[in-house]
Design a protein around this nucleic acid. Structure first.
Length: 107
DNA sequence: CGCATGACAGTCG
DNA sequence: GCGACTGCCATGC
């Protein structure tokens, strides 16, 4: 497994309950600001192997990426964690967005 | 090895 | 503010 992938797994696994992160955010922290796609792939590939909280990972719009039933399921799981959805079906990233500061260089 | 694809992001009109 | 286009990087065929 590449370092990037490993970091992504660590980061996602480190997302606390009631918080969410975006693909771009995770990718950036993992070391590749442009690797949001890889985060997506990693979710697909490893979410079942490592039991990652995929439901806490959203796109930059704060919306569920999956269409249909999976999205509904994800939304319900997030609500169970205490996350409140906006009227448009998005999550308030300003409030629920999680930033693992211990992984930041300085900033 | 080359082409196509993906649960995306950022910019432009 | 929304829709369309391009960029990115790794995996799959």
């Amino acid at each position: 497994m590449r370092p990037f992938t490993k970091l992504v797994v660590e980061i996602i696994a480190d997302i606390p309950k009631g918080k969410v992160m975006t693909y771009g955010q995770i990718a950036k922290i993992a070391g590749s600001p442009r690797a949001a796609r890889q985060v997506v792939r990693i979710l697909h590939t490893l979410t079942e192997k490592y039991q990652l909280p995929w439901q806490r990972v959203l796109n930059s719009k704060g919306c569920i990426g999956l269409p249909g039933q999976h999205g509904q399921l994800q939304r319900r799981m997030l609500e169970e964690e205490g996350i409140v959805f906006a009227e448009n079906g998005s999550v308030h990233l300003i409030e629920y967005g999680y930033e693992p500061l211990h992984l930041m260089d300085e900033n």
